[in-house]
Nucleic acid binder design. Structure first.
Lengths: 132, 132
DNA sequence: TATAACTCCTGTAGTAACTACAGGATCAAG
DNA sequence: CTTGATCCTGTAGTTACTACAGGAGTTATA
């Protein structure tokens, strides 16, 4: 059993974040030492690492929690997992599309923008045009 | 001079958001009618429309504010505008890259995930592997 | 043994950019 | 005169943390 600092180091999840997950009920309350300090087991650390990977993959915390629960369940529900993941993939793809459109629009806006202009063409367009 | 609801309709910025911009000093305080209701001029609405476009382009509000101020300045500083825009474009591009990597990782994770599995391969990987 | 440096505790507040009320006042239409 | 729309201020909620404040206990060094 290890203290919170070590659990943080082993899992990559910050100390404050670990306590936050505990407050929010994302992870179970850990054991406590006689001096009231939190004590983490190997499987506690495993849960934190699991959550870390989900978050790094961009899953919202609520999804990460759901995936963790599925992962702890006796019969793992592969279909639910896939559903969550595919919804997430779809939202990632639509974000990519949106950002690509943005990139395009921004490139166009700055195209004629060079030092020495009295009137900045980008500002002009932001002020006046309706198609942005 | 129009009321806040009409200004919201004409600019596309929500009523609460308009008041929020005012509180934050993003837009100047509008005139008030005798009954204390806000009154917006055409240029007030112009500012709101400008901000709306900046936000739609993904500029953080602080950038939108800066761009608005540049736009109001007597001598428009095209170089500053371009700098803000290019920094923003760079961050958009890096977000796109990051999301593409995510999409790839997620697709791989779900590849072998089909209903009927006793052990979900995605959960397996989330639990055990270190390369995610 | 004293003391410094470290880690931990609880609880609260701050972040970005809104959004959603609550509770009340005012206004326009019929 | 009443109904419904709009407006006002002020506060709290959203996401997922992060940063303290203020205090207590632990470990390492002198």
């Amino acid at each position: 059993m290890i203290a919170i600092g070590e659990a943080s180091r082993q899992s990559g999840v910050g100390i404050e974040t670990i306590r936050y997950y505990e407050r929010e009920g994302i992870v179970p309350r850990p054991a406590r030492a006689l001096n009231n300090r939190r004590l983490y087991s190997a499987s506690d650390v495993g849960r934190l690492r699991f959550l870390k990977k989900c978050r790094d993959l961009g899953f919202p915390l609520s999804d990460a929690k759901a995936l963790l629960e599925l992962s702890e369940g006796s019969a793992e529900d592969c279909r639910s997992v896939k559903e969550l993941a595919e919804t997430h993939i779809a939202s990632v793809r639509s974000k990519i599309d949106e950002l690509r459109r943005l990139e395009h629009a921004l490139s166009e806006l700055t195209a004629n923008c060079d030092s020495g202009n009295v009137q900045c063409p980008m500002l002009q367009r932001l002020r006046t045009m309706d198609d942005i």
